[in-house]
């Protein structure tokens, strides 16, 4: 009993630094702009107002931008799942000459910060006429550096699959593609779940690339749109910005709340376990 009280105490104290900023973000979006940085900060606005939430849609094609971010993140997630499951499986379970060397080559993608390659990538996409389109935001994450992490996770997962399963399937006359599709992939759901979350969040929060590649307001993604709520003298309209930021975070949080049990327990049953 005493341990329990103690545990709850620790958890509650630990929560504060995790929760306060989000709380502040949401409540401040209901305050007038001038009150946001008042000191000491008010935990709840005196006179909460949703007007800033409405302004978000008046000032920018926010619904369109929301859709842009959503569909890009979705396409990137699906594409990454396909690319990384295939590659991760092959690197883990198929034997072919040059396998380790090729894996190392692919791993270089894990090592490159996007600041490093943004200029050459920009030149490439510019020469293909793809600047100010969503293509760079879709193609690079699916095939380039960001998907390498996914491939790595998938490989680590497939390595732990018991070999007997494949042997049995092979005895039954299944070829590699069939083994992959009918045996490995269904078993890999938890790892695929982890990859989905990583990938979706990565795409959803991408900031540098959209700023560099996308130039028209109606093609903006959300993180880029967040910087655009300013007053006549470029002073940020904090309450509007924070309303928009809240709107980008809350749906993802809700999805996590709903899916987290399956996600964590799924991982625990087979996934990246010991």
């Amino acid at each position: 009993m005493r341990t329990k009280v103690w545990l709850y105490g620790v958890l509650l104290v630990l929560c504060v630094p995790f929760v306060f900023p989000t709380w502040w973000m949401v409540t401040s979006s209901l305050k007038p702009n001038a009150d946001i940085f008042a000191f000491p900060p008010a935990l709840w606005p005196d006179d909460p107002s949703w007007s800033a939430w409405g302004q978000v849609f008046d000032m920018q094609p926010f619904a369109q931008q929301y859709w842009n971010s959503a569909y890009i993140a979705l396409v990137v997630t699906l594409g990454t799942l396909a690319v990384s499951a295939l590659a991760g499986y092959a690197f883990a379970r198929v034997r072919f000459p040059g396998q380790n060397a090729l894996f190392l080559v692919v791993l270089t993608g894990l090592l490159i910060p996007s600041e490093v390659t943004i200029v050459p990538l920009f030149r490439m996409f510019n020469s293909w006429g793809m600047v100010d389109t969503h293509w760079p935001l879709i193609l690079v994450p699916i095939f380039g550096a960001p998907s390498v992490l996914a491939t790595f996770i998938m490989r680590q997962f497939f390595i732990t699959l018991p070999g007997e399963l494949e042997e049995a399937a092979r005895m039954d006359g299944l070829g590699r593609p069939a083994i992959f599709w009918r045996i490995a992939v269904p078993l890999a759901k938890p790892a695929l779940g982890a990859v989905s979350i990583f990938t979706f969040l990565h795409s959803w929060n991408l900031y540098l690339e959209p700023i560099v590649f996308v130039q028209s307001q109606e093609k903006f993604t959300l993180p880029q749109a967040l910087t655009q709520f300013v007053d006549v003298y470029q002073g940020p309209l904090w309450n509007v910005q924070l309303s928009a930021a809240s709107m980008t975070a809350i749906p993802v949080l809700i999805v996590f709340v709903i899916a987290q049990r399956q996600f964590i327990e799924g991982l625990a049953h087979t996934g990246l376990k010991g």
Binding site: F18, Y207, A249, L253
Partner: peptide
Amino acid sequence: LFFSPVVVSLVA
């Protein structure tokens, strides 16, 4: 609660 910051905008 502990996971929530992961989905919050980095800038905010």
